[in-house]
Every structure is written in C-alpha cells, then in structure tokens.
C-alpha cells in the first residue's frame, strides 16, 4: 500500500514540475494544484499508520494504546486541503482577471516592466 502511495506521490510531483515549467499560465496553475495534492498524500504517507503511539492520553498522562492510526497527520491534511482550496480559488480568479486584462496567457509577459 505504502509503495503504491509513494509511486503516486512521485508521479504527482513529476507532473507538477513539468506543468510548472510551461509557458501557459493555465498549465502552471494545474501544476500548482497537482503539487498540492502530492504534498497532501506525502503528509499521509509520512504518518505511517500504526507506527507510533497516538496523542490520546490516559488520565495519568501516558499515551493510550488504542490500536488506531495517528489522527494528527489527518488533521494536518484536512487543514492543508482547506487552505489549499481557498488559495487555489483565489489564484484562479486572479489568473482569470489577468487573462481578461491582457488577452494572453503567456507567463513571460508577467514580469515586463514599463521603466527599466
């Protein structure tokens, strides 16, 4: 299971890198979305289910052996998904406004300056 997950993460990162290096703004955005998904899966994979005692304490403050996966990475992923979703929507809106203003989705025009 973990091997499949790792291959998937690798593929997502490779695809994201390829897309980020493109000139089309839309592909750069797709690259960012893929990168976000790759990172979320990496968080999940790095948590290695059942590998450690979880942060659920007994009354005496000792971690309880409940035989479940560590819930913390899942909380982290959930947070990352929510933040990533908000930022993606904002970025898409920004990219659309840029495209409407300039009529071109080539990223090379983004850095052009009027004054040297």
């Amino acid at each position: 299971m973990i091997t499949v997950l790792c291959i998937l993460i690798g593929l997502l990162f490779a695809g994201a890198t390829y897309c980020l290096l493109q000139r089309s703004l839309m592909r750069v955005l797709i690259g960012i979305l893929m990168l976000g998904h790759g990172v979320n899966l990496l968080l999940l994979a790095s948590s290695e289910p059942l590998s450690r005692q979880v942060a659920i304490l007994n009354e005496d403050g000792v971690p309880r052996d409940v035989g479940s996966a560590d819930p913390l990475p899942q909380a982290l992923i959930l947070t990352a998904i929510v933040i990533g979703f908000g930022l993606s929507v904002f970025t898409l809106a920004l990219a659309r406004s840029c495209f409407v203003k300039s009529g071109d989705d080539d990223v090379r025009q983004l850095g052009e300056e009027d004054i040297p």
Partner: peptide, 9 residues
C-alpha cells in the same frame, strides 16, 4: 494583477 500572480505562484 500580474505582479500579484507572480507573487502568489
């Protein structure tokens, strides 16, 4: 907008 996009990405 363009400067913002560079910054965001």
């Amino acid at each position: 907008l363009e400067g913002g996009l560079v910054y965001v990405i």
